[in-house]
């Protein structure tokens, strides 16, 4: 019953955390917890009501942080060292199932298909957005989870509040009508990665246009990875997609990667 509920939640991309006793009394017992207690109350037990309560509370914190870890308790959920003297330890494996990270790609260009494909391999929920009905079709982007025909603002107004550190916005259109509002909208969210395609010249011109709409704060401009991707000499859409995704990974984990945004010289040599 717990497995069936877990499978259901994972497939539905609903945040869930599974607790399993891996050592101590009641080894093998499980508890399934969701942040939405009203619609999905906790299922199962680790063998002690108080342990269930304390471990579930901690597990929701782990879920929030997207962490999977092992935590230790006393048989009734004791956590302070003096309460744990002379009691067996219950070790609990806390496994977080967060919804997949999102990637929103603005611009239905040939680079978009390659980027959507690589992003799918990495487990992203991919949305392609372009205002031109002729280009933004599911037939051109069968690998995308969603293809929406609209301007950037409505998409970012709707999805923006859900975007966080694990998510990415990639702006591949070179059209100022489209990329300026996309950048504005993305900067208003907490999205972890904003990449903007274009040559160094395009980037310089874009900065002028951004200034015209009041985007001049260095902290905002520093969030823009532009030109998008790593300086690995990629040429094809597929190679560019790899360089973008590698940059996203590097930024997420805080590594010092050779981003084009931080290097100079020609992108293609």
């Amino acid at each position: 019953m717990i497995y069936a509920a877990l499978a259901d939640r994972i497939r539905g991309n609903k945040p869930t955390v599974l607790l399993t006793v891996i050592d101590g009394p009641n080894t093998g017992s499980t508890l399934l917890v969701s942040p939405d207690q009203r619609r999905f109350p906790t299922l199962g037990t680790l063998g002690d009501e108080e342990l269930d309560r304390v471990a579930a509370r901690d597990a929701l914190g782990e879920l929030e942080a997207g962490r999977t870890s092992v935590r230790s308790y006393g048989p009734s959920g004791q956590v302070t060292p003096e309460d744990l003297v002379d009691t067996p330890t219950v070790r609990v494996f806390v496994e977080s199932f967060s919804p997949p990270p999102q990637m929103i790609i603005f611009g239905a260009v040939d680079f978009t298909a390659a980027l959507a494909r690589v992003a799918k391999v990495l487990g992203y929920y991919v949305t392609v957005c372009d205002a031109r009905e002729m280009f933004a079709t599911k037939r051109r982007f069968p690998m995308a989870d969603e293809v929406v025909v609209t301007w950037p603002m409505p998409v970012l107004a709707e999805r923006g509040p859900d975007l966080g550190a694990r998510d990415a916005v990639c702006i591949l259109t070179h059209d100022p009508k489209f990329d300026v509002p996309a950048i504005q909208g993305a900067l208003a969210t907490s999205v972890g990665y904003i990449g903007v395609m274009g040559s160094r010249k395009t980037h310089a011109k874009r900065l002028e246009r951004l200034a015209e709409v009041g985007i001049t704060k260095p902290t905002d401009l520093a969030r823009l990875m532009s030109p998008i991707g790593l300086d690995i000499g990629s040429r094809t859409p597929e190679e560019t997609a790899i360089s973008i995704c590698a940059e996203i990974i590097g930024k997420r984990v805080g590594r010092d990667v050779p981003s084009l945004a931080n290097t100079c010289g020609p992108i293609h040599r």
Binding site: T20, I22, T68, S69, V70, F93, E95, S96
Partner: peptide, 15 residues
């Protein structure tokens, strides 16, 4: 079977 912990370098993460 689930990976619960890794010491040093490991190919797959916990979970």
């Amino acid at each position: 079977a689930r990976v619960i912990d890794i010491d040093g370098s490991g190919p797959r993460d916990p979970g």
